[in-house]
Amino acid sequence: MLPIFEKENGMLYYPTFYEGLEASKNVIYTGQEATQQILWGLDWVAKEKGAKTYFLVGSDYIWPRTSMKIARIHIEKHLKDSKVVGEEFKPLGDTDFKTLINKIKLAKPDVIYTAIVGGSNVSWYKQLKAAGITGESLAKKNQTMLTISTTEDEIRGIGGENCEGFYACMKYFQSLPGDNNTKFVAAFNEMYKDKYKGNAVVGDVTQAAYLGPWLWKATVEKAGSFDIDKIAEASEGIEYKEAPEGYVKIHKNHHLWSKARIGKMRADGQFDVVAESPELIEPNPFPEGYK
């Protein structure tokens, strides 16, 4: 994709969390890059839950691979007395997690840290529950499952009853307080009322996608032009104060300053927001010492 946007000089507002190691004049990254999503979340679980041992699980492609690499470096170098006791990747779309779950049971990590995507997600949560691993059973043993890949959107497919009590680190949850978000969710429901009957689900990525056009509008107004070069030039410092997630600003590396948040999954498919980074986190797609 990137070479085409660069060659044709187009503009892409790219909304999903991704592995970083990239920055382009022709892209505005409205999701979290890896360090924004990972580092603060790991710090949180180490501090709040006193976690020392981690089992990393991901789907086998570049985003989880890179994310887990960053996570491992952070755990081993920056978290006191902490270590990774297991790291496993499963082929994309794989639906059999029983063996992996047994290995996790044997390793007894304080934290199961996951980046499993797509159809595998559903199997993963269903089989965890079937193996007796639930938010409740983990809490009893002072263990935590923290994911960076499950949003409200996925839970809709997984079924909230399979997810209750697990944690996710995102920058946006549908249940975030604040006028911006309340208005946004109400408007979203109004717009898609025929389709979702007032039960629309908005996940992290949906929100990040929603930011795109507004950021573009603000940039065009600042640049006074639709010209791509001028938009790329004018992007730095563009703010969007009405963002559902609160407030975002475009960094000169074309990523967003955003907060990170921890949500605890509820049976109804929504999250209780239990923690929030105090400041906006600077995007750092080429993190020194994490490559």
Binding site: K98, G118, G119, N121, V122, Q127, K129, A130, A131, G132, D153, E154, R156, G157, I158, G159, E161, N162
Partner: peptide, 25 residues
């Protein structure tokens, strides 16, 4: 989107014949 059929209770969870032993239902 991914979807799910809602499972009846008897199809979920695990059977625990002994401590720590979970056989998926």
């Amino acid at each position: 989107r991914e979807t799910s059929a809602t499972m009846p209770d008897w199809l979920m969870g695990s059977w625990q014949p002994a401590e720590g032993l979970d056989i998926p239902i």
